[in-house]
C-alpha cells in the first residue's frame, strides 16, 4: 500500500522524511488490569501523543515517573468506566483513522503531520477527541503536580509557616 492511500483521514501529506519511530523499545508492555492489553507499541503511541499534547520536560519539570506511565496508571486505577472506554475505543479509532489497515503508524508521520492531526482531532466531537482530551487531562495533571510547577508557578510550599492575608499582586 502506498503511503498516500494509507493515510486516509489525515487530510494532508508532506513529502519529507519519516521520523524515527517514537520508541524502538523491545521491553514488554506494562499490564493494566482494567483495560485490555495495550501492546508496547500502542503504549508508545500513547506516550507520543501525550508528549505532543504537552511535552515532558525532565530538565525543567522533572517527575517521578514517565508521562505515559502516569497517564495510563491514572486511567486504569482512577478512571471511570466512561474514561476507560474513551481510552480503548478512542485508541482503536485513532489508529485506524490514520491507516485503516494499520499499515502505517502514527510515528511514521512527520512531526508537522502528527501535530496537525492531533490539533484537528482535538477540536472535533468524536471518539478520537474524547480519547485525546482524556490523555490531555491526565498529562496536564502530571505536569501541574510536578515539583517545579507546584513550587515555582503555584507557589506551593510544604511548610510555609505563615499566612499573609493582604499581599499586593
Amino acid at each position: 500500500m502506498n503511503r498516500r492511500s494509507a493515510i486516509r483521514n489525515v487530510g494532508f501529506l508532506s513529502g519529507g522524511i519519516f521520523l524515527l519511530p517514537y520508541a524502538c523499545e523491545t521491553t514488554p508492555e506494562l499490564i493494566y488490569s482494567n483495560f485490555p492489553l495495550i501492546k508496547r507499541k500502542e503504549q508508545n503511541v500513547i506516550g507520543q501523543i501525550c508528549n505532543l499534547i504537552l511535552a515532558e520536560d525532565p530538565v525543567n519539570f522533572p517527575t517521578p515517573e514517565k508521562r505515559v506511565d502516569f497517564v495510563l496508571t491514572m486511567i486504569n486505577d482512577c478512571g471511570s468506566p466512561r474514561e476507560i472506554s474513551f481510552l480503548t475505543n478512542g485508541l482503536n479509532s485513532f489508529l485506524t483513522s490514520i491507516s485503516p489497515q494499520q499499515k502505517i503508524d502514527f510515528s511514521d508521520l512527520l512531526i508537522e503531520e502528527q501535530n496537525k492531526f492531533i490539533g484537528d482531532q482535538l477540536e472535533e466531537k468524536s471518539l478520537i477527541s474524547d480519547f485525546l482530551n482524556l490523555l490531555k487531562r491526565y498529562s496536564i495533571l502530571h505536569f501541574k503536580t510536578s515539583e517545579n510547577y507546584l513550587t515555582q508557578y503555584l507557589k506551593f510550599e510544604f511548610m510555609p509557616g505563615r499566612y499573609l492575608g493582604r499581599v499586593a499582586v
Binding site: 482494567n34 517521578p64 491514572m74 486505577d77 495533571l141 503536580t145 507546584l150 506551593f156
Partner: peptide, 15 residues
C-alpha cells in the same frame, strides 16, 4: 510525602 510523590496524586482509585 510531597504531592508529586503520591502515585495517584492524592486521588482514590475507582476500586
Amino acid at each position: 510525602m510531597q504531592p508529586w510523590e503520591f502515585k495517584h496524586r492524592g486521588r482514590l482509585t475507582s476500586q
